[in-house]
Amino acid sequence: MAADTQLVYHDFREAMQVARERQLPLLLHFGAEWCNPCQRMEQTVFARPELERNLAGKLILVKIDADRSPELTQMYRVNSYPSDVFIDTQGRVLSKSSGVSSLQGYIASALQVESRYRQSTQLVQERQESGNSPAPYSFLDIRLGQTGPFPESVQVSQTRTDSKPAPTETLTDIEEKEPEVVFVALDGYCPVRLREKRSWVKGAEKHSFIYQQQEYRCAGEDEVKAFESNPDDYAPRLLGCDPVLMWETDRALPGSTEFAAYYGNQLYLFTSEENREMFRIDPQRYIDLKHVLAPRDVEATLIR
């Protein structure tokens, strides 16, 4: 088979190199010689010519023996077999599943993830070519201190460039430096009414609740009690930061209530309609983010 249409690889490094050259996603199939369901899939799925006819040229399939590749297995947190992990050419997880699958089910699932990946990747390329980067700096201001366009050089994780050693900080030191409240979340709208009734109702300062150093304003005492009992249900994911930006740029920039969306009954905020559309096309890619954010990681708040 020609190299440019080869589907199955057994060496991860080689497969990753080919995937980057051909700009294709990778499907990592984890199995083991002692795993009976894995061996059954070898016969019913991987030995069938239909697999190659449907998937060749659309993705790179990497068959991984979990016992011989423990680091890779641990990296992608695979703990049952067979398991499949879809990743992009930077190694980021696009989708993950486990268990035995039929031939048709396996092909359909792979094509679905590949289609979403292709559409969202195309959108990113089009935006880059048009000069419309994922981060809309034009309407971002820094609220802590001076205001102005947010500099592109600022990153979530910053590296010291001077030669002086960084001072050692204890957890207590860090906590003392952080302000009690970073900003009023959701532009002051009640998170409980929003989730339960999908209604944009302004909350009141007297019915506020502090969570993760953000002030949430509720419509009344009942809403405060509901929020207090289960704040994770009502607060936006990722501290309200745009998940598309975090994926594409590794930056924590807060989204806007103007571009909000619920997925799996969880609230996500975006900085633009384009980013919300990218999320709609391939939500699984963005909800699997492994970022652990603290309020101090949020770069700026939206001035509306």
Rank of each mutant, 00 (worst) to 15 (best):
V181S: 03
V182A: 10
V182I: 14
V182S: 10
V182Y: 12
V184L: 06
V184Y: 01
A185W: 01
L186M: 06
G188W: 01
G188S: 02
G188C: 02
P191A: 07
V192M: 06
V192Q: 02
L194A: 08
R195G: 11
R195W: 07
E196Y: 07
K197F: 12
K197R: 14
S199A: 13
S199P: 06
V201C: 05
G203P: 02
A204D: 11
E205W: 05
K206A: 12
K206E: 11
H207M: 09
H207K: 06
H207C: 10
S208R: 09
Y211M: 10
Y211Q: 07
Y211N: 09
Q212D: 09
Q214F: 13
E215C: 13
E215G: 09
E215A: 13
Y216E: 05
R217Y: 04
C218R: 06
C218H: 08
A219R: 10
A219S: 15
A219T: 15
G220T: 13
E221F: 09
E221T: 15
D222M: 15
D222Y: 09
E223N: 09
E223M: 03
K225G: 11
K225D: 12
S229C: 11
S229R: 12
N230Y: 04
D232M: 13
D232I: 14
D233C: 10
D233K: 10
Y234A: 06
Y234Q: 05
A235K: 03
A235T: 13
P236G: 05
P236S: 06
R237G: 06
L238E: 01
L238N: 05
L238M: 12
L239E: 01
L239Q: 03
D242M: 00
D242R: 00
P243F: 02
V244I: 04
V244T: 04
M246W: 05
W247A: 03
T249S: 08
D250M: 12
P254T: 15
P254M: 12
G255R: 00
G255E: 01
S256H: 07
T257K: 02
T257E: 06
E258M: 13
A260P: 00
A260R: 04
Y262C: 05
Y263F: 15
Y263A: 12
N265I: 11
N265T: 14
N265A: 14
Q266W: 00
Q266F: 02
Y268R: 01
Y268C: 02
Y268E: 03
F270T: 01
F270A: 00
R276H: 03
R276D: 00
E277A: 14
E277N: 13
E277Q: 15
M278V: 14
M278I: 15
F279D: 04
F279A: 03
R280C: 08
R280W: 02
I281A: 05
D282S: 14
Y286L: 03
I287R: 02
L289K: 03
L289S: 12
L289F: 08
K290Y: 10
H291S: 12
H291A: 14
H291R: 12
V292F: 07
L293G: 06
A294H: 11
P295K: 05
R296N: 08
R296F: 07
V298E: 00
V298R: 00
E299W: 05
A300R: 03
T301W: 04
I303G: 08
I303R: 11
R304L: 10
R304S: 10
R304D: 07
